[in-house]
Write a protein that binds this DNA or RNA. Structure first.
Lengths: 160, 160
DNA sequence: TTCGGATCGTCCGGGTCCAGACGATCCGAA
DNA sequence: TTCGGATCGTCTGGACCCGGACGATCCGAA
């Protein structure tokens, strides 16, 4: 029950760390994920990694599992369980590369493509909702700054 | 060794999902966290939760563990292990509220304050680095949009 | 005072994650 | 051809996370 202290404790971390970039990034990502996870489970996907992998596969470009794990930033061992689940639901198939029988090429199936398309609609709606009332220029700026932050670290990492 | 395929596979997920808000939020948060985790470990903290808790305690406002767990968005059971670790390193102490012996009031110690201050410098440097070259107005816009996204969902949640 | 329900911090069980080890396979050198 | 090192996907051990249950404590009603 929240009848005792309805809003006193509800001050989210934004109230405590109003200007901390990292905190805000986390909180915002969390909020979006929560909303999308809800949509994802409704159509049989498990969590953010499922549709993340599906999204990466949706462009049809062949990738090995290792490449895929790097692209979506999921540990290769964890990726196995994701692919196992998706394959069980017949959303992807793993085919062996005839040129190199060590590697598996996960591919999205027509069913998988359909599920992902349906999910993409929900995703776009959620993102549009989150940015409701923000004009186009500001949205573009937000996205570009985020992309800049996301990419920046590659330089600092490779300097080791 | 990255001598074989140095940059071919390095195209991060921004290249795959250039316009997806949620993805970018995740990636950006991840990058910042990676950088800050590095700084945190160097001064004896464990991961993002440690300095998150420390940051919340640094304002000196007394909070119960339950309140604290809500503020920093950490499960109350997980918070216990965080506090155990911080207390072992003498960065915080748990004192019993004399008015209600059920509750514990975690408080930051002078040592903890010192460690956090040191970390805060590294954090500010990392964030300044991430936004290097972005003018003040754009930074403010970024922060406000992130805060907006982070807070937005409370409304949609409480509507249930 | 006594007592039942509510709330605090903590503990336990099942599930998940990831570093490291492993077999299978490729490829270049001899 | 043969062989040693490198790389692929998979498996496994130990650590972590969190929902639910627990004892301790508070507080209002009788």
């Amino acid at each position: 029950m929240r009848s005792n202290e309805p809003d006193a404790t509800e001050l989210a971390l934004c109230a405590v760390f109003p200007t901390d970039l990292t905190m805000l990034l986390h909180a915002a990502a969390e909020r979006m994920t929560d909303e999308l996870d809800l949509a994802a489970v409704q159509m049989g996907l498990n969590d953010v990694r499922d549709w993340l992998v599906l999204a990466a596969l949706d462009d049809g470009r062949p990738r090995t599992q290792l490449e895929l794990s790097r692209v979506v930033c999921v540990d290769k061992t964890t990726l196995i369980s994701v692919l196992d689940r998706l394959e069980k639901h017949e959303l992807v198939v793993r085919s062996v590369d005839p040129a190199d029988r060590r590697v598996r090429i996960p591919q999205i199936t027509p069913t998988g493509r359909k599920v992902y398309a349906k999910f993409a609609i929900a995703r776009d709606a959620a993102e549009a909702h989150a940015l409701d009332g923000v004009d186009q220029a500001d949205r573009a700026l937000l996205l570009s700054l985020l992309a800049r932050i996301a990419d920046r670290q590659e330089a600092t990492l490779s300097s080791t």
